[in-house]
Amino acid sequence: MTVPATPIRVVIVDDHAIFRSGLKADLAADVDVQAEAATVEEAIAAVHAVQPDVVLLDVHLPGGRGQGGREVIAGCTALLPGTKFLALSVSDSAEDVVSVIRAGARGYVTKTISGSEISAAIRRVAGGDAVFSPRLAGFVLDAFGTAEVAVEDELDKLSARELEVMRLIARGYSYKEVAKALFISIKTVETHVSAVLRKLQLSSRHELTRWAVDRRLL
């Protein structure tokens, strides 16, 4: 994780003005907030106008068809490879987390995290990597199961290494600590996490589907 020379251009989407201003004040110097939005419509318009590197996206938003952050991502699919979405929410329910990840967000953090942590998460997402909180890792382990192991690049199972990485993240390890514990580089950890994110987004695993249906995600 290197600090880019140019500032990261960010759009903050949250319906609470107090939270937006607090977050803005907390963010590191290399994060440049270009626009703010409070509703789904405003968010889609702002993201299209600014075309930022990263969108900090609240999961619950007023407006649109009532689908909140998911709808914003769906409305910005044209920009998706260039613009990354980092979901941000007070909610840590499985519905909210997994649905927004499956919609295309590159990571998920809770609103209680500190300014420096969120700045680090923004840099990581801007660099093309995924950001997993311990809770999201827990959901992944819950959804994919902890017993079965993928032989090859199977979409609906995690590989042994991915399982290990997820477990360590769920235990509260940072990427750096995961790398140290598994004797691998941070880059490799990031690769594993990105692979898990891809599986979470693309997998049509029977259990995952059922798990999601149970929670009315699909």
């Binding site: 209680t112 311990p134 809770r135 890792a137 827990g138 382990l141 819950d142 902890t146 769920a170 235990r171 509260g172």
Partner: peptide
């Protein structure tokens, strides 16, 4: 002090 619990199974 915040205690974050993540549970699987």
């Amino acid at each position: 002090q915040a205690v974050e619990v993540v549970a699987v199974g």
